[in-house]
């Protein structure tokens, strides 16, 4: 069974219909969160073309994320980054059998509506694109399609889940080829989970209420998350993953899977690297297999990457206080 803490149940996104003589329900939390559960232990790859999507599928990607530009190019280009061309999303949906996701701007309700109408399998309300409303994220309960959101810490993750996110990923620092920030974010979440679990185990309700105030979320989601000792939804790592060892390391920190953005298709050995990152994510518990995966790539072909300390644009800060 999947935990449903923070579930709002009967919302606009839940649709009751009939197929033949069968009454059916779409858009429930079980279906949205369940979809994310089917991605576990997998790699979601950022792609910009049909050809890249097919390389990703053949390499064993569990889903693809369609963008107009890879995050590192978004960073270089500047200007306003928006959702990808619908025509390209549709072409990719028609050419691969795995799920297809796409990004919309933070708070941009209508970009998300357009993606839902396009029938993408999951919508990423993403800090890689230029936010439309940093103070108010999309109220995701109004949608039948599931959403994934980024988070840098537990409070941010729970705020997104309360808004209806069916899946969480670390933000990391997108488009840098540098995994450092993703590592910090997942460790933040883990540390805070341990903290609230110990408060819960001690039965200190007063302290749990102060955690809820600090996180700016309801008491009930804090209580349920604390009792579970993990996020109530699937949690992936994202941001700066470039090598098989990067992916395997994040799996050891308790992530359910990984998103790889620029790391694959900004490298000169994309095909081998895509396969190698999948292998390392699947067999992360076996260092010998991860070594074999790491051997499949050439470090001289990795994207050069950026130091995350002196960046002009820190995408991870977008929408993080709301």
């Amino acid at each position: 069974m999947i935990p449903l803490s923070g579930d709002l149940g009967d919302t606009k996104g839940v649709i009751k219909e009939k197929i033949g003589s069968f009454g059916i329900t779409r858009g429930t939390s079980t279906l949205k969160r369940g979809f994310a559960h089917m991605l576990k232990n997998g790699v979601v790859m950022d792609v910009t073309t049909v050809e890249q999507a097919q390389i990703a599928e053949e390499a064993g990607a569990v889903a693809v994320m369609v963008l107009d530009k890879l995050p590192s190019d978004v960073r270089k280009a500047g200007g306003v980054a928006r959702t990808a061309s619908i025509r390209i999303i549709q072409e990719i949906m028609d050419s691969v059998t795995i799920p297809v996701m796409a990004k919309c701007r933070i708070g941009h309700v209508y970009e998300a509506m357009v993606l839902q109408e396009t029938n993408v399998d999951m919508i990423d309300e993403s800090e890689v694109l230029t936010p439309a409303d940093e103070n108010r994220h999309i109220w995701k309960w109004d949608f039948t399609s599931p959403f994934v959101n980024g988070a840098r810490n537990l409070g941010e993750a729970l705020r997104r889940i309360e808004e209806g996110a069916a899946m969480i990923r670390t933000k990391g620092e997108p488009g840098t080829g540098n995994v450092a920030e993703a590592v910090i974010h997942i460790k933040n979440v883990n540390t805070e989970l341990r903290r609230i679990k110990s408060i819960y185990d001690a039965g200190d309700e007063q302290d749990l209420i102060s955690v809820a105030r600090e996180f700016k979320v309801s008491y009930s989601i804090v209580e349920e998350t604390a009792s579970l000792g993990r996020l109530p939804v699937v949690n992936f790592a994202a941001g700066g993953i470039s090598t098989p060892a990067d992916a395997a390391y994040l799996m050891t920190l308790g992530c359910d899977g990984v998103f790889v953005g620029s790391g694959i298709f900004k490298a000169d050995d994309a095909k081998e690297r895509a396969q190698a990152i999948v292998l390392a994510t699947t067999f992360w518990e076996d260092p010998d297999k991860v070594k074999e995966a790491q051997k499949m790539i050439d470090e001289r072909q990795s994207m050069l990457g950026l130091d995350t300390k002196n960046l002009e644009l820190r995408m991870q800060e977008r929408g993080s206080t709301a």
């Binding site: 069968f22 009454g23 059916i24 779409r26 279906l31 979809f35 059998t97 029938n119 399998d121």
Partner: peptide, 16 residues
């Protein structure tokens, strides 16, 4: 037939 009922938005629950 894979994805016989459609994509994720068409996913559903029903009593069988």
């Amino acid at each position: 037939e894979r994805n016989a009922f459609g994509r994720q938005k068409d996913s559903f629950e029903s009593e069988i």
